[in-house]
């Protein structure tokens, strides 16, 4: 099934620089599975070590990144245990601090 992953707040620089990706994922996959799948498939080899640290910490998203499942905070949807559904849109929003 297909899902869409989007980056906001500059997190795409940890990956290949694209803000939007359409991914084919197996049915029944959790968001936790998706996090690791993204590191393995969307990060260029030479950036993986650093990119992983920008994206993940202690096996979940790093502090300062909000995960939004279909325009809703993942805290309202079961966090990383949420089971992905066809056509889901998952946004990884890194907080901004400038002003």
């Amino acid at each position: 099934m297909q899902i869409t992953v989007e980056f906001s707040g500059g997190l795409e620089t940890a990956f290949d620089g694209n803000k939007k990706h359409v991914l084919d994922v197996p049915e029944g996959s959790s968001v936790n599975w998706l996090l690791h799948h993204m590191v393995e498939t969307l990060m260029p080899d030479h950036k993986r070590e650093e990119g992983k640290n920008i994206f993940l910490q202690d096996e979940s998203v790093r502090p300062g990144v909000l995960v939004l499942i279909n325009d809703s905070d993942w805290e309202l949807e079961g966090e990383d245990q949420y089971i992905l559904q066809p056509r889901d849109v998952i946004i990884f929003a890194s907080t901004l601090h400038g002003g």
């Binding site: 502090p63 300062g64 400038g98």
Partner: peptide, 19 residues
């Protein structure tokens, strides 16, 4: 929303990143 601050290396100001 943000119980733990982001790593300092992940924080950019308008003076560095631009605006």
């Amino acid at each position: 929303l943000f119980p733990i601050p982001p790593p300092a290396d992940a924080v950019q100001t308008c003076g560095d990143g631009g605006i």
